[in-house]
Amino acid sequence: MSLPIYATFGQRVWYYAFRVICAIIFIFLITPILVVIPLSFNAENFFTFTPEMLRLDPEGYSLKHYQDFFTNAEWQRSFKNSLIIAPIATVIAVTLGTLAAIGLSQSHVPFRRAIMAILISPMIVPLIISATGMFFFYSKIGNFMEGTMGLDKNFVGYVKVILAHSVLGIPFVIITVTATLVGFDRSLTRAAASMGANPVTTFFKVQMPLILPGVISGGLFAFITSFDEVVVVLFVGSASQKTLPWQMFTGLREQISPTILAVATILVVISILLLTMVELLRRRSERLRGLSPG
């Protein structure tokens, strides 16, 4: 990708022009996030760059929105809820999704297309429709669990949101895991089986490590789907299950508070950490697969 020394003038111009174009697109991608970060230190309660901020006057900056996030009970509760709901929803989506993807990747699966379409459907049905449809369904389930099984109202609330979110995360797991399995060499499992490993051992010792990147990236998508989902939780959940996006959404609607931006900044930092982790994992898996570390 580097420019060869024999490149003509035109090639050189194009080479640099192309880099500039790419740089501009990257700027387009990243600016909204960069804008959010300074605004989260705004001393005023608006999403506005104040003259003080532009003068880099320390007066114009403050940590009060961060303070608000860490001290306000509503924010804390919603953050905690998101941390409960998203991981559990992810685990469900990943477990069921990976199993199904392995099933789907076998040869001779009857009705493969139809099954695939059904499993992908949560991604393609407009969210607002899914949300209302699921509301009625989960209300019935909730009534049953509370009334007949006598479970705690709060617990039932969490179950409803977690199930709804795991459904939404499933298509991502299916897509990523099947994509990884397309390149999976079946002779490996046969080799393992021929050496006396039972299917379970084969799965965990041979297949799993190799499709792990797909599973992890599917899991991360599922996690983000739940962590960033506002429409369905607004319908299916009740206030005790208020998640972070819900709190942000009402924050945007009803109050002017850059606390939302502070939260976003914190999440961006967490995202960077997560992405770095994924990258490290990926490098490890490639080492394991004997591919060059690039």
């Binding site: 509301f135 009625f136 209300s139 009534n143 319908f235 009740s238 009402t250 009803e254």
Partner: peptide, 19 residues
């Protein structure tokens, strides 16, 4: 629960679902 903006719709849905 800061949902007063959707109160009518949600109450109707809740009523219909009996929850």
């Amino acid at each position: 629960d800061d949902s007063s903006a959707e109160a009518v719709a949600k109450l109707r849905a809740m009523n219909e679902a009996g929850n």
